[in-house]
Design a protein around this nucleic acid. Structure first.
Ligand SMILES: [Zn+2]
Ligand SMILES: [Zn+2]
Ligand SMILES: [Zn+2]
Ligand SMILES: [Zn+2]
Lengths: 163, 163
DNA sequence: GCAAGAATGTTATCTTATATCAAACTATAC
DNA sequence: GTATAGTTTGATATAAGATAACATTCTTGC
């Protein structure tokens, strides 16, 4: 495995997104089973809504989508599902956007490093071990014990740089 | 200049914080003058409140502090000052906390890399050129053009790891 | 002084997230 | 199968974070 891997994102416009969703669902079921937790219909629905694209989704947008199939859902409904999915490592929160996105590799515990296109909204999730260890080194120098990393890079994807 | 520099933070408890504030104010005046902008009393007050410690401060806490000396300030008052200070590079927003902190080196344009103690709230601002260039390299590999970096590491400072 | 632009005041509203308690559902033990 | 403890969801209210829009005041250059 290369030390700098693109986990997901910036797929070609024509990629079969149905496959992405199917894979994600299969993984989610596996992860939940492994953890002895329940991938309930509600959690599954929220998860599918998040995977409707490779773009981050806002909690209240999820809520609005949910409202199409559920009777007057309230904010805690979606926030609880998001909390569960984050705990399980199935979803990341993008702090700089207050939005959420499905994790591209939920099997392995990680924080994720994100490249966010300001123009089209597409997000790539990377996992660069070298970057992480550089941060650890810096932390060690000042006696800091790392628990959590928030790494979000915004800019323009290749597509959106075209003239 | 070393390639991994602690710009500020994790100062000894006994450091002369008056010096920090005085330095910060002097730099702020200089930066504003250079930019042809006005470091008004309101902006200065907000800036001083932010520099009252090396911890991030929330906008509504600033507002509450402001209320002690101003007549019923409203949210836009503090958000406008924060916007101005951020534009000028004098203040950073910590996205993972929804809080703001004075920049330790406003002269040079940078995004900042932060180590945030979950226990005591103290924040260290680093600037690791190696880290930044590693991110640029990763971006280049996927054809991404970087505009903005959000790098916030949370954990425990040396003090707060003591048994 | 006067006009134009910048900064601040004021009111209302929007967005994001949580607290709290009630009802429904699920799994296990008997 | 029923009791029951634990988990999940429903429902209401409110907290926390941020902005829109317009009025007023202040500053600066003339
Ligand atoms: Zn991930
Ligand atoms: Zn794009
Ligand atoms: Zn800085
Ligand atoms: Zn600490």
């Amino acid at each position: 495995m290369p030390d700098n891997m693109v986990i997901q994102g910036f797929e070609s416009a024509e990629h079969d997104h149905g496959d992405c969703v199917a894979d994600a669902l299969r993984e989610a079921e596996r992860v939940c089973t492994e953890r002895g937790e329940r991938f309930t219909p509600l959690r599954r629905t929220v998860f599918e809504l998040l995977w409707s694209s490779h773009k981050p989704v806002k909690a209240y947008d999820l809520l609005a989508q949910l409202a199409l199939t559920h009777d007057r859902p309230a904010p805690p409904t979606v926030y609880r599902a998001l909390d569960f999915l984050q705990e399980a490592g199935l979803v990341h929160k993008l702090e700089s956007l207050n939005a959420y996105i499905g994790c591209g590799e939920p099997g392995r515990r990680h924080q994720g490093q994100f490249m966010i296109c300001e123009e089209c909204g597409v997000v790539a999730e990377l996992d660069d071990e070298t970057l992480t260890s550089r941060i650890d080194t810096n932390a060690r120098k000042i006696g800091f014990k790392v628990n959590d990393e928030t790494i979000e890079i915004s800019g323009l994807c290749r597509q959106c740089q075209q003239p």
